[in-house]
Design a protein around this nucleic acid. Sequence first.
RNA 1: GGCGACGUGGCGAAGUGGCUAACGCGGCGGUCUGCAAAACCGUUAUUCAUGGGUUCGACUCCCAUCGUCGCCUCCA
Length: 471
Amino acid sequence: MHLYSTISKRKEPLVPDAEGTVGIYVCGPTVYGRIHIGNARPFVVFSVLKRFLERRGVRVRLVSNLTDVNDKIYTAAAAEGVPSAELARRYSDAYIADTDRLGLGRPDVEPRVTESVPGIIALIEELMQRGLAYAAGGDVYYRVERFPGYGRLSGRRLEDMVSGEPATGAAKESHLDFALWKGRKPDEDTWWESPWGPGRPGWHIECSAMAEEALGRGFQVHGGGIDLIFPHHENEIAQSEGAHGGCMAQIWMHNEMLELGDEKMSKSLGNIAPLADVLDRWPAEVVIAYFLTSHYRSKLPFSDERLGEARAVVERLTNALKAIDRAMATGGEGHDADLTRAIVDGRREFFRALDDDFGTPEAFAALFEMVRGINRATTAGEASPAQLREARHELLDLLDVLGLAGIDPGPAAEVPAEVLSLLDDRERARAARDFAGADALRDRIRALGYEVTDGPGGPQATPIAPEAGSA
RNA sequence: GGCGACGUGGCGAAGUGGCUAACGCGGCGGUCUGCAAAACCGUUAUUCAUGGGUUCGACUCCCAUCGUCGCCUCCA
């Protein structure tokens, strides 16, 4: 498969390492609050990318960190009057719990900064030995102008960079330099001893250290939000490649931002929708479909309208599965060549789309071609139960790649006898052409939580799905 | 000011040198239905922000303009 790489601005072939493994490192959240729907985008994109690659027979090692020590964590903890370690642990747990609800599994490794300090210190020492870092007033800084490739990822030149650093950074040799280690300030209650005195890691160094520890030097894909390109990922490259040479990652893969109204959603702007709240209102599969019906490199508006469209997508897929189940019961005895063609073509196009820079919108288009073929077949009624079962299996198989297998309604749940009885009453009313009575009975059944639909095989009562917003 | 991304039908979203510009939602017409839902069939952009240029040929390449967004301030 090919993936677009920010550093080359081209689609690059994804080449596994000598053991046939693809290592992926994705920058995870800083845990000073509940994560928002925007944070969920890389989680979904990279989790599903992993599923896809594994389906392709590639072994994947997905690593996504938690940044659990940071200025914002100190600040939030101080505001609440709790120890920063406690606050970080609480929101680390919340992050795991919130993303678990998506049902996409966990990354293979989820390292935490607080558990990676020895490796971080070792990396800083290596940089100092190479003259790329220097201690100053209890801090350690990276000497940016000593690293020739600086700016390669973000396409910046050093002379173009404006000094945004406040005057407090007076200990630095250059305003471009960034902190690798920050000396402990009196009110900072999470800290470690180091060769440079007590303190804690700077923002960027932890990812260099944790990526190396989990994936080794020179892995396949480094990912994250596009807003991390500068300075975070630029600095990671400076650190990792500065310390060891070589190439930190083959491909730099960045997802675009969510938009709320006209601006991006972000914690600093305060216009956030917590993932947990979104998942209270919409099923996980709808949220996944919401992300995946758009390309990961496109800006994605966040709104109830868009979630509603994603729900329509999911319903169309679900309805096709239901249609198959009904058709298998009534069953034809022949072979529907058009159905087979739709399945084969759909499967081919599905994988072709994902092979080309993870083209999930086109993959959905392929699914819909398959769905139309299925719906045509169930309408025509020629396909045998065996052929229909195969079609169902194929569709579900592809849905599973996208993490959407959960939309399978499965075998219909037992309908309560009371509902069945009312259904019989309604049929008698309909037979007597007492439609007012029939509709009244339908209302009573609905009050019991079941929707009545009249199909070719007679009426059916199906549980009413919970509506968005009702939770 | 510097760097970067993007502007495709009512909405969303693919395509990125050459067959009829995918797919979903919505609209309209039809089939089915007591009604409804689902589904199916047909229809819904002579056109891809605008203006130039390159080319036998551009939505696709180049330039300019307008517009939107992101980064340059520890936000995915």
